[in-house]
Design a protein around this nucleic acid. Structure first.
Length: 285
DNA sequence: TATATCTCCTGCGGGC
DNA sequence: TGCCCGCAGGAGATAT
């Protein structure tokens, strides 16, 4: 399940393998994968042909390619199961390859997405806070690996929120790039239960939590991302190995790496949350 | 306006 | 063997 470290691994791969090349053709095989492109798949296909890829950029879990056309950027979201693979044009097409872009060096950039939560869309670039962003990304906050990430401003914003802290961590307009896995890992490291109201946490506790978010994402990035199955791979089709280092997520009933208590799983926001019952006591109601 | 919940989707595993 | 159901979860839409 791609979160910020996994998306950054993909961005680096695109930077290495597709930047500088010209898109010669695009084939959309599944219309749902271009549903966020307002003018439809045919328009995306027509506009992308002939564009030279100039850079691969990212904010949070949103990735985009810029071109020699300053008005266009290809925004890519991997959703839950999206992959961007660079393959030889002769390689057999993957079962869930929903978009295929042929490049001028004989390779193909393929968007593969089993659960179709992700997709491609062409966007106009706009300038915000001195930075060029695709229109659909302007509402996304800076992520913790952004050199201009302002932790104090995020702490202040979090303290205005009456919601539970995990819900706030997952709010991409407050801090971007955090998904269910790294939220659970950072909360475990900071010894905070996800149901505690954000506004009730002290500034030092929130600073510590953001610092843990940065640490766990940095470690995951060094390991090439987290992978639980074949759904997450980088542009070469290789999986990351960070799952071996996870302390909470997916470890129900296994001993806490700190105190030995069995990790508990709880339902939260229609998904699962993992935490240590001893290190992360639930807030009193 | 802020917050909470629902919906989209597919493949897998468990239960019957 | 085949069917049904729950689960996984990011983000936009909708409800409160």
């Amino acid at each position: 399940m791609p979160e910020l470290p996994e998306v950054e691994v993909v961005r680096r791969g695109l930077d290495e393998h597709v930047v500088g090349h010209v898109v010669e053709s695009v084939l959309v095989k599944h219309p749902r994968s271009v549903r966020r492109h307002e003018l439809g798949g045919d328009d995306l296909v027509a506009r992308m042909a002939g564009l030279r890829i100039e850079a691969a950029r990212r904010r949070g879990k949103f990735l985009w390619l810029t071109f020699d056309d300053p008005d266009a950027a290809l925004v890519v979201h991997l959703g839950m199961s999206g992959q961007m693979l660079v393959q030889s044009a002769q390689a057999p097409l993957e079962k869930h390859a929903h978009i295929v872009a042929g490049l001028d060096n004989g390779t193909q950039l393929r968007f593969i997405d089993q659960r179709t939560f992700g997709g491609w869309a062409l966007n106009r670039l706009v300038t915000l806070d001195g930075e060029e962003l695709p229109e659909s990304v302007v509402h996304i906050a800076r992520d913790p690996l952004d050199p201009r990430f302002d932790a104090e401003a995020v702490v202040a914003r979090m303290r205005t929120k009456s919601s539970e802290i995990k819900r706030v961590l997952l709010d991409q307009t407050v801090v971007s790039g955090v998904g269910n896995i790294y939220a659970d890992e950072a909360l475990w490291r900071a010894r905070i239960h996800g149901e505690r109201p954000a506004a009730a946490l002290t500034r030092p506790a929130l600073r510590q939590l953001l610092s843990e978010v940065q640490a766990v994402m940095g470690a995951a990035l060094d390991a090439g991302g987290t992978s639980f199955d074949a759904l997450y791979v980088n542009v070469n089709g290789n999986s990351g190995y960070f799952e071996r280092s996870l302390a909470a997520y997916g470890r129900e009933d296994e001993p806490c790496r700190r105190c030995g208590a069995p990790i508990r799983r709880e339902k939260f926001m229609n998904r699962s949350s993992y935490s240590c019952p001893r290190c992360q006591p639930k807030p009193r109601r």
